[in-house]
Amino acid sequence: MKNQIKIVILGLLVSIFIFIFYFGLGSNTKNNPQVMVFKKLPAIELRSLYDNNIKISLPRLNQEKFYIINIWASWCTPCRDEHPLLMKLGIEKKIKIFGINYKDNQASARSFLKDLGNPFYYVGIDPDGTNSIELGAYGVPETYIIDSKGIIVLKHVGPLNNDVYKKILTKIE
């Protein structure tokens, strides 16, 4: 009887260990760029790329059902790659996109938009990268979808591609 109890306890302990390791090793405990999703967008203030005296505050509450925030820079090659998709979202689909120009030369940023088209409703500058850190950004490019309550409902790290584009449209429409 005593031995049977010992075997049951040992079996239970082994099962607990297997259970912990099975789920522990399977889950992503490492870097998770989605930490900010379903959290409120932190309050940030951005000066306009076209007139440094004009400022805009984010999040914008109850103004749009959804809007997009895109962090970009003229020196960033993947930003150039994703630009046609941003044009589609901003110009064709008429979704408001707030651009955050990350650590860039303002003249280069303006010429980037002049050459490739401007999909942004407003472009704010982040000369030292601190506003992007407020949003939990890792670098450029990065895209966020914000709802009318100021909640981040989608975050994409890296350049947009057709799959993410479809995901954004499904979320918004």
């Binding site: 405990t29 490492k30 870097n31 998770n32 930490v35 959290k39 939990g136």
Partner: peptide, 12 residues
């Protein structure tokens, strides 16, 4: 400071 960072980037 740690709380601020964990809120944005997780425990990692």
């Amino acid at each position: 400071i740690y709380k601020y960072l964990v809120e944005r980037y997780g425990d990692w």
